[in-house]
Design a protein around this nucleic acid. Sequence first.
DNA 1: GGTGCCATGTAACGCGTTACATGATTAT
DNA 2: ATAATCATGTAACGCGTTACATGGCACC
Lengths: 193, 193
Amino acid sequence: MSVRHTLLGLIAQQPRYGYELRAAFTALAGGRENWDVTPAQIYTTLNRMLTAGLIREDSSPVDTPSEKRFYALTPAGREMLEDWFNAQVNSAPQQDEFHLKLMLARSLEWVNLPRMIQAQRSSLYQELHRITTQRQLLDPARELAHILLMDKAIMHLEADLRWLDMVEARMEDVQKQPAPEPELRRRGRPSKN
Amino acid sequence: MSVRHTLLGLIAQQPRYGYELRAAFTALAGGRENWDVTPAQIYTTLNRMLTAGLIREDSSPVDTPSEKRFYALTPAGREMLEDWFNAQVNSAPQQDEFHLKLMLARSLEWVNLPRMIQAQRSSLYQELHRITTQRQLLDPARELAHILLMDKAIMHLEADLRWLDMVEARMEDVQKQPAPEPELRRRGRPSKN
DNA sequence: GGTGCCATGTAACGCGTTACATGATTAT
DNA sequence: ATAATCATGTAACGCGTTACATGGCACC
């Protein structure tokens, strides 16, 4: 998705090679713990971009003997990059794994719903604590990018916690309510149904 | 990733067939606009689960002539489902496309940064308005699941907007700061560098 | 001389998407 | 009749992950 575009952006700054791109990407994206782009992905993606005509192999700067393979933008690549900047980010659909678990859990008797919610809550708290702590260690003057990313993560975690409180408050309603079963028109030869 | 598990959960409630599973999944996951699981994905996933021994083809209930292919859980499937419920949801890494755009934009002169932020803000506002409006139309007595999901989306959008304000407030700092370039030890035969 | 980082890949697999394809039944 | 919905798939492709594979250079 955005890996391609980010690589384009990094190459637009200056011709670059794979290993360097991985490091630069990781630096932008919040560290290896947050978003690990593996060498395999970097090199296969670069080859696909090469095939697609978005980048071309650039003659290495004079000082580098070989082995490093530098890439530069082609006009097509530059155009795709501009298109990316001009498009707004379409907000990702709310594909929430925990919500699915929650909705399923209320119809399966053997799942301990309150326990599940509590587990999720403590997991969120842990994560919040971890990030907040780590954030303190960053230097605002040098690692602003990373800080901004963590601030966003913190805000989202806080939202998740408030949401969990809300869910718990409505738990009784949730359990009373039947799971939403969409009704389909029956086909074939129906009997008792 | 959670599609498999959700299908397992739905099949655990009662034996089901593909088309029905798609409808049930969509109902749980917040409607087709939010999470569209295509027939292709349903049927290929069911086949994979079949191959993996998580489900088995169940003899159709007496009333259905044929064509519908019902599936039921195997012990292995049941076990995987229980494991899923016992594991806590590992919070997805903050893979933020807009953040990447932002970080790249400050080092590319031809990108209008303030304009980009404003575009993103209005996009978020639109989405917030859309969801809030749609939320009002839902019946709290019957569509609680969907409402909860939208409440979460709303909270996240509000967080995103507050975050954008924060970013904008620090814009000058952001631009003043050089893009974080990780330094690699040079190799080969270095010249001027 | 070994550990660790620099540097580049290939192969197999899993999941998801798009496009294509088919046919039965139900409501108008 | 015909449109919509029910019902099930296949094929090709894109992206990402894991595992495997290789080799050079620098530092201690």
